[in-house]
Design a protein around this nucleic acid. Structure first.
Length: 464
RNA sequence: GUCCCCAUCGUCUAGCCUGGUCCAGGACAUCGGCCUUUCACGCCGGUAACAGGGGUUCAAAUCCCCUUGGGGACGCCA
């Protein structure tokens, strides 16, 4: 069996969109699962809208997601000679012709067709004129005018379109540059691409591309068109729905493994399984169970997956990933080891790295800078509570070691001696050392903070 | 307008190809309860769907047709 070659071909006119990321993942999965190759091709033939910054951003997002590609990325902007050679070949074999109709002429033809209730298209006026390479002329494909073209789609099944529906598309513009459909066919063929998984929105021009393959006498790859991702209003996902680029999710504190897991499950499934590691995906993936209906992007489920992966991640890694978010909150150079100790307490409580940083803030902030919630102080640091805290402070200061068990024993004895319940003491302590009413368990929090911090904060709280 | 695609809980989906095991299963969200030093985690339970109409068949979520609804494409953009 021949090698499977897939590709992802973004155009650098913006950031990597979650929809694009999803098709990239599917292609990557198909290649990796079969020991094939996964190639990255940058479709930057539109020099107006393509930027290097976008290209770098897309590559960065791919890397962030863990989608490695084989070989160097291919840039279409550097292959114009190749495309033109193919166009010339088409011209020579009579599969293409020069056309001198202006954009205005063509627009008029479209209007006319529309008026008749037909599909707007080019009339084929220059098709039989046998024009030569006139300056300013475009090259059009001499497409078949009868018959049917069938796409044997991996996800939609056979899709057939009447050739009469398609017009003679432009292959080479007046300025000599090749158009998208031509370039894609040439590249996919040159690169040996065997399987193309792409968005639903391309389904319409797949028959066009097949016609070009046939005119060129080239083998046609297998196509699979996955449905698009919709916003909550069931419209194509766009900026107005909120974050749409992979980069934004990275900035919002999502983990790449959560992103990949979520995106794959959106439109693909394997029984009832929800959680998939990369390895499991590579093993389980199959184009057979790609869904064929559009899916709404559900941020709540992404959040749930993110929370899941945060719970599973190694504290050291999380500490590293959280540091930039803490810096964003104004805390630079937080001690990594200390942060790593606090993180396990926060893992079940944070849905994103941003939340992780917010919750780690009271651990990392300097004692004198700890902010106290006014209402909490008023409610829990009552005169009676202060008396207890002052007494407890003495016990804690003399405590041998400052561990969870030691702290629990000391505090329980403290309570027993006074015949009071932990409930009475817990919130005052919490407010005193964290500044607020919600935090991880007190014993573990105190152990992580350490004696100096706890005592300093207790002292500070008593002065409030 | 024309063409193409799609249609199971609010959302993602399993089941559909190879009709009966489905008064439709799982997950997120939601609601209730348990756990509990707060907040979470976790655990237990509940509400909730085969778009509608015709066929075919002993039997249809599953096959066929129509309607409706949604999406996409109709560029010298990709």
């Amino acid at each position: 069996m021949s090698e499977i070659v897939t590709r992802f071909a973004p155009s650098p006119t913006g950031r990597l969109h979650v929809g694009g990321a999803r098709t990239a993942i599917f292609n990557w999965l198909l290649a990796r699962q079969n020991g094939g190759r996964f190639i990255l091709r940058i479709e930057d033939t539109d020099r107006q809208r393509s930027t290097d910054e976008n290209t770098r951003g897309i590559l960065a997002s791919m890397s962030w997601l863990g989608l490695d590609w084989d070989g160097e990325p291919i840039y279409q902007s550097k292959r114009f000679d190749l495309y033109n050679a193919y166009i010339d070949k088409l011209l020579e074999t009579g599969h293409a012709y020069y056309c001198t109709c202006t954009p205005e002429d063509v627009e008029a033809m479209r209007e006319e067709a529309r008026a008749k209730g037909l599909k707007p298209k080019y009339s084929g006026r220059c098709r039989e004129k046998d024009l030569g390479p006139v300056p300013g002329a475009v090259v059009r494909l001499k497409a078949p005018i009868s018959g049917t073209t069938v796409v044997d789609d991996m996800v939609k099944g056979p899709v057939s379109v009447e050739n009469a529906e398609m017009d003679d598309m432009i292959l080479r513009r007046a300025d000599g540059t090749p158009t998208y459909n031509l370039a894609v066919v040439v590249d996919d063929s040159e690169m040996g691409v065997t399987h193309v998984i792409r968005g639903d929105d391309h389904l319409n021009n797949t028959p066009r591309q097949i016609i070009i393959y046939k005119a060129l006498g080239l083998p046609v790859p297998r196509f699979g068109h996955v449905p698009m991702i919709l916003g909550p209003d069931k419209k194509k996902l766009s900026k107005r729905h909120g974050a749409t680029s992979v980069m934004e999710y990275e900035k919002d504190g999502f983990l790449p493994e959560a992103m990949v897991n979520y995106l794959v499950r959106l439109g693909w499934s394997s029984g009832d399984q929800e959680i998939f590691s990369k390895d499991e995906l590579v093993k389980a993936f199959s184009t057979d169970n790609l869904g064929s209906s559009a899916a709404v992007f559900d941020k709540d489920k992404l959040l749930w997956l993110n929370a899941h992966y945060i719970k599973e991640a190694a504290p050291g890694r999380l500490a590293e990933l959280t540091a930039p978010f803490l810096a964003g909150l104004g805390l630079e150079d937080v001690d990594a080891a200390y942060l790593a100790k606090a993180i396990p307490l926060l893992q079940p409580r944070a849905n994103t790295l941003a939340e992780m940083a917010e919750k780690a803030f009271c651990f990392a902030v300097a004692d004198e800078a700890l902010a106290y919630d006014e209402k909490a102080v008023e409610k829990f640091l009552t005169p009676e509570a202060r008396e207890l805290l002052a007494a407890l402070r003495a016990d804690l200061a003399g405590l041998d070691g400052f561990t969870h068990d030691g702290l629990e024993k000391t505090i329980q004895e403290f309570l027993a001696a006074r015949e009071i319940k932990f409930k009475i003491l817990a919130q005052p302590i919490r407010v005193a050392i964290t500044g607020g009413t919600a935090s991880p368990g007190l014993y573990e929090t105190m152990e992580v903070m350490g004696r100096d911090r706890v005592l300093a904060r207790l002292d500070r709280a008593l002065t409030l």
